[in-house]
């Protein structure tokens, strides 16, 4: 198998986290994406072999989940939330603009392999609508212009800072994180942003707080 050296060992590390090996399958497939850029047939077969599954069983799982790519994802996998709240608040417009700007549609990759584009569903960030993601890192409260700006920056090789997270890294690097391998970036992105603090700030403004418990 043409998987990078050490892939099997890293997959075994994932298996070792669980009381029952098969539980490791989802993170293992994330790791395959980290190694290969998508779920390659070889990677799928290796996971199946390591867990004693048929390839039909392994493919049954990988094809169920939308994060698993069936062909190489772009180095920067761009998502635009088109779920109604984001969509109505601007996501649909951002989607149309980005699709045109990149010249690709849903689930397509730019010829240079730099970008892939996906219409994504709700990212649990509705307070921050309209939301876009680059390799799944949040880019909040986007406008058509700021969205185009993000891809232009990436194209120019400039770092893009997630609004609630680290500087956006490659698809494969992020997939390694999602597979559960520590990247040391947990402290990046700092504390809560203004929207997450909206209530706390307002409470402080109004001098409101939760009652203290009676101790004794």
């Amino acid at each position: 198998m043409a998987l990078p050296d050490g892939t099997r060992e890293r997959l075994s590390e994932i298996v070792a986290r669980y009381p029952q090996p098969r539980s490791a399958l989802l993170p293992m497939l994330h790791l395959v994406q980290a190694e290969e850029g998508y779920v390659t047939p070889d990677g799928l077969a290796l996971c199946a072999e390591m867990l004693g599954l048929s390839t039909a069983e392994a493919a049954a799982v990988s094809s169920f989940y939308t994060m698993y790519q069936r062909r190489p994802a772009g180095e920067f996998h761009i998502g635009v939330c088109i779920n109604p709240l984001c969509g109505i608040l601007g996501g649909d417009a951002i989607w149309a603009a980005l699709s045109e700007h990149l010249g690709i549609g849903h689930d397509e990759v730019t010829p240079d392999g730099k970008f892939s584009l996906e219409r994504i569903e709700c990212q649990a960030a509705c307070t921050h609508a309209p939301v876009m993601t680059a390799n799944w890192e949040y880019l909040d409260q986007m406008t058509v212009e700021s969205a185009k700006g993000v891809v232009d920056k990436i194209r120019a090789g400039e770092p893009v800072q997630s609004t609630r997270g680290p500087v956006v890294r490659s698809f494969r690097d992020t997939e390694r994180t999602v597979a559960g391998f520590d990247d040391g970036l947990a402290d990046e992105g700092g504390g809560a942003d203004a929207l997450m603090l909206a209530g706390l700030n307002r409470a402080k403004e109004l001098g409101q707080a939760a009652p203290e418990p009676k101790r004794g």
Partner: peptide
């Protein structure tokens, strides 16, 4: 959920 790497990190 897999799409929130920063929450996973934290």
């Amino acid at each position: 959920r897999g799409e929130v790497p920063h929450a996973i990190r934290r």
